[in-house]
């Protein structure tokens, strides 16, 4: 059975990647209605943080068996 940490890594990577890419898209094509503090582009740096965290977990747990 795969370790739980492997599944955590996967979901953080997938969701973090989607958020990061959305942020990049909005950098060049801003939405019509902007949220408060949109100018600091939280989805880019927060999505990137999730990718980093997910990647570390993925590479540490991909071969681990629970």
């Amino acid at each position: 059975m795969k370790s739980i940490w492997y599944f955590v890594a996967l979901i953080l990577l997938v969701i973090g990647g989607l958020i990061f890419l959305t942020g990049i898209y909005h950098l060049f094509s801003p939405p019509e209605i902007e949220t408060v503090l949109f100018e600091i582009h939280p989805n880019i740096w927060w999505g990137f943080l999730m990718i980093i965290f997910g990647s570390i977990m993925y590479f540490k747990t991909r071969n681990r068996i629970a």
């Binding site: 989607l18 959305t22 942020g23 939280p42 989805n43 927060w46």
Partner: peptide, 14 residues
Amino acid sequence: ARYYPTGLIGLGVT
């Protein structure tokens, strides 16, 4: 809803 733009709001709701 105040702070999260598209993408992040999906994460917040999730």
